[in-house]
Design a protein around this nucleic acid. Sequence first.
DNA 1: TTAGACCTGTGTCTAAGACACATGTCAAGT
DNA 2: ACTTGACATGTGTCTTAGACACAGGTCTAA
Lengths: 121, 121
Amino acid sequence: MRYYTRLGLLKPAKSVNGYKSYSNKEVSRLKFILSARNLDFSVADIKEIINESEDGKSACPLVRSLIKERLEETEKQFQAMLALRGKMSSALSQWEEMEDKAPTANMVCHLIENFEQIKKA
Amino acid sequence: MRYYTRLGLLKPAKSVNGYKSYSNKEVSRLKFILSARNLDFSVADIKEIINESEDGKSACPLVRSLIKERLEETEKQFQAMLALRGKMSSALSQWEEMEDKAPTANMVCHLIENFEQIKKA
DNA sequence: TTAGACCTGTGTCTAAGACACATGTCAAGT
DNA sequence: ACTTGACATGTGTCTTAGACACAGGTCTAA
């Protein structure tokens, strides 16, 4: 992707004509980036990881700690989506059985305005 | 929020001094917007719904059809997150037991580069 | 030689706000 | 009356991770 090149994650050497030349290194780096993106590392994370490894250090500890963070975030979002999904499907089924109403000065749509999640006791 | 005002969803009358005056209508409209956002309607959806209701029509059919769409999207994202979560936690536990390795010319971090999701048979 | 197919970097767009900023206005204290 | 500090205003920029477009350069085949 040109995007990664723009960010400086890839630095392809230009051949004489101006076209990019993709060395083995660039190719494997791109693969690395894509693998990392697949695991939900952010581009900033990846930058950090690459920097670490360019200093000759092992990036593994950093990688472990980052995945822990990202996993927690994902878990939170997952729970949020779970709740949202429940709320939405509850709304959908409620609304199927409610009649239409015309809007009023203070109400755009009663379906939404009067929707209350049925609490799970 | 000033954001909604910027988008023209709220049109508060300015009082003489330049401060906004929030009529009942504006207040209830803001509440409507927030309720709709809670149900994962996009701001564009909300705009559409409001337009419909400003024409005097009942927005209910539109609302029902939109929530259906949004719910399907949410379901997809939910499944994606479920898979992602599994992948990430699998990576995490795998990596806990693997040793650090220094980077090489073609490898940034072997944890990521060699990670393969264990397929569920 | 030239047409068409490819490549280049760069600029703008996305969603839903968050944050900052210069300016404007108010109430209270001196 | 004047000033200070606390709020309000609209507007501009920033965020993510790219997608798309565009003007221009370069290659290959006819």
